[in-house]
Structure formats: structure tokens, C-alpha cells
Amino acid sequence: MNIEETQDAITEEFSLLDGDREMAVFYLMELGQKLPEMPEADKTEENVVKGCQSKVWLSGQTEDGKVYFTADSNTAITKGLVSLLVRIFNGQTPDAILHADLTFMNRIGMERFIGTQRSNGFGAMIKQMKLYALAFKTKMQVKS
């Protein structure tokens, strides 16, 4: 699936919740529980995403020119939120991540059910992931 297709899938899934905030919160927490575990060794101060009220760790690596993220959070809802981004970006090229236009948040009305503060934190996670992509892209260009 490319980034657009995954965003469509997420939008579709959330539309089934019919705007029920409690269900949306539970669904996010469920998604968070399914996020593959991040190695404890990666939960370093360096990997903490700045600008989130909750603690969020994010780490990225490349394999065959594709980017793979691992992430975790000390709060269940935020872990669900970051899991959405991991799902969208994992297996994509640095270029695709850099140029991705993330529209699913508006489409599912995310700010309505996570509030402004968490939305700002969510923006910080996206920025951090794009920075990873930029670094990987630069590294690949230097190599080639």
C-alpha cells in the first residue's frame, strides 16, 4: 500500500466509528496495543519527540532503501496515534515520506477527539519522521 492508500484505509476504519468519541478513543488505544514493541535500548532521551505532552519515543532505520520506524509512548492514546503514522510511513521511501501530504487527520476529524494539545504533539511526531526521511535521503545520496 502506498501512503495515499493507507490514509484512505484509516479514514474508512474511523468512519465506521460514526463520530463516537468514546469508541474512537478505545479504537486508538487498541491500535496502540498492537504496535510492535520498541526495544527498550531505543527508548533513549535522544529518541524522545520534543513538543509532545506525553512521552513519545521514535526511532527509524532503512532497509533496501525503505524506511522503518519503531515507536512507543507512556500513554495509551498517544501510542495509538503514533501507530497510525508508523503504519502509513513504514516501508516507504524517504522521498515518499518527505513529500507525503497527510490528510487523514482532517478527514477523520481527529482534532475534535484528541484536542488541540495532542494535535500539536501529533504534528511534532510527523515533523520528526520527516526529519528522519530527510537524513536518510541525504545519506543515500552521499553513498550513491
Binding site: 468514546e22 478513543v25 507512556n74 495509551a76 492514546i77 498517544t78 477527539f113 484528541i114
Partner: peptide, 12 residues
């Protein structure tokens, strides 16, 4: 359970 999660959940 983190207190933020409880707060958000109760708000919903």
C-alpha cells in the same frame, strides 16, 4: 494507566 489517558477517556 496514564492519567492523560484517563482524562481523555472520561472526556469522551
Amino acid at each position: 494507566i496514564h492519567h492523560f489517558d484517563i482524562g481523555q477517556m472520561l472526556d469522551s
